[in-house]
Design a protein around this nucleic acid. Sequence first.
DNA 1: AGAACGATCGACT
DNA 2: GTCGATCGTTCTA
Length: 206
Amino acid sequence: MARLSSDFYNADTVRTARNLLGKYLVRVPDGGPVLVGRLTETEAYIGRCDKACHAYGYRRTARTAPLFLPPGHAYIYLIYGMYHCLNFVTEPEGEPAAVLVRGMEPVSGDAFMWRKRYGARPDTPARRRNFLNGPGKICQALCLTTAENGLDLTGDTLFVCDSPGDIGLPPIPARREIVRAGPRIGIDYAGEARDFPWRFTLTPEP
DNA sequence: AGAACGATCGACT
DNA sequence: GTCGATCGTTCTA
């Protein structure tokens, strides 16, 4: 199956965060169906120069070790004791940097993902709106925990591809959309990096 | 050994 | 808008 190669991730992190918008994240959980989402929100984190990055100043610890893997690996960590965040490692090996996945729209495996997010609770407009619009929600829906930390994104259980056809799904009609850049969420502690416009969203054209 | 904190979420006023 | 949950990581000593 066609998927983005490590070359795609071996690139400038901010550009890669933008380039990931509209692409298809594919996850095959153990014993589960193929889960697919179209990426709509990402953020860039760069250890070399970004106080918000866990590997700021090339800080290398047990937690940040995956950020030093070659580009095209997953960096997944526990946040606030209860949620997980998924990142794609970017830049040439040795430059610790990654793109955080913050939002996507469901494409395939909706029922499975819904059960992971909400159990048996009924479908409501509010739950529909808040289905996959946050990093913790995405990991919950995709069965991603620290057990998947360090996964190779050229493998078969977690990867990104350009179009639904790459994984045997019907095409999705094009819509008019715009990319917006803005400051990242939840990093007010990060000094000047707080204002870096490294958050990207894909939204319907007004 | 102990303490502080966090790239969040959902419930609630 | 506010607030608490919950625990691994990190730093200090």
